[in-house]
Simulated scan of single mutants.
Amino acid sequence: MEHKKTYNAMEIKHRNGNVIIEGPIPSSKLATLDFHEHLVAFRPPAQQHKALIEIADLPEGRIIIAREMNEIVGYVTYLYPDPLERWSQGEMANLIELGAIEVIPKFRSGGVGKALLEVSMMDDAMEDYITITTEYYWHWDLKGTKLNVWEYRKVMEKMMNAGGLEYYATDDPEISSHPANCLMARIGKRVDQESVRQFDSLRFMNRFMY
């Protein structure tokens, strides 16, 4: 499958300063930008910056960033699902995963997260993909936001809706392990019915295991 990537951008006038949302960003550009020290949700900032540069080099890898001046203050990643997850078992060339989304506390609750999703979907190539995200409450910053799991889930769902991702049921054991966890997906306009059927069979792999 051909991996087209068309750059898009928008500016957000946030109460704490103006932010540029842009991407997909090539690894060469990512390497020249500073990475904010408060981007700590997944691993230490220097390691995460390195990981984003590596993802941007993958044929299907996409990084959309939120940038204040020369510093990355938020990002979202897209890449093929982890080989250890069920979503990779169909070996679908047109199924990609929103792997991580993070915005520093200073720029939260001002539309930056939603804008990252909106800019992601401005690229026409996304109409060729089924885009999924698996949301687990243990990844959420409940302490920093002072929200409970259900409040956070509502905020997260609203943000994903901005990118056209909707809730999809699944019997995946990890997702089913807590009612706040969920699978969300967006099926691009040009995705064929066979791919949708394949995605449905990945969502429900345990239905005959009784």
Rank of each mutant, 00 (worst) to 15 (best):
E22Y: 06
E91K: 15
N70P: 00
H38G: 04
R207M: 13
H178P: 02
P45W: 09
W138V: 01
S27F: 08
A93T: 12
L39S: 02
G113L: 00
R108F: 03
E22F: 04
W138D: 07
F204H: 11
L147C: 08
E54Y: 03
Y152I: 04
E194A: 12
D57K: 15
E85Y: 05
D172W: 04
I12Y: 03
T77G: 04
D123N: 10
I65W: 01
I132E: 00
A162V: 05
P45Y: 04
T32A: 09
N16C: 09
S28K: 13
V40H: 09
F35Y: 01
R43Q: 15
Q198V: 08
A56R: 03
E37S: 14
T77D: 07
K50D: 15
K29N: 09
E194K: 14
E174F: 07
L79S: 11
D172R: 05
E91W: 07
R62H: 05
A125R: 05
I132P: 00
T145P: 03
H3S: 08
S195D: 01
L84P: 00
G144E: 07
N94W: 14
M10Q: 13
A125Y: 09
E102V: 00
E135G: 02
L58A: 09
R108Y: 06
Q48F: 12
M92E: 04
A169L: 14
C182Q: 10
N161K: 15
R153D: 12
W150M: 07
E71G: 02
G188S: 03
R153K: 13
S176N: 15
M122N: 07
Y129D: 02
Q47R: 14
K158L: 08
T77R: 01
A180T: 12
A125G: 02
L142H: 01
R153Q: 15
L39A: 02
T32K: 14
E85A: 09
Y167W: 13
R62M: 11
L116R: 00
S28V: 10
A41E: 14
G110T: 06
A115P: 06
A180Q: 09
R207N: 11
L30M: 08
L52N: 03
G111D: 08
V149Y: 04
A51H: 13
E91V: 07
G23I: 04
L142D: 01
A46Q: 07
I55Q: 05
T134H: 03
V196M: 08
A185K: 04
A56M: 08
D141E: 14
R190P: 03
N148T: 12
I12R: 10
P179R: 04
F199E: 00
Q47V: 08
D172Q: 09
H49A: 13
N94Q: 14
D34V: 02
N16K: 15
N206E: 14
R153C: 12
E60V: 10
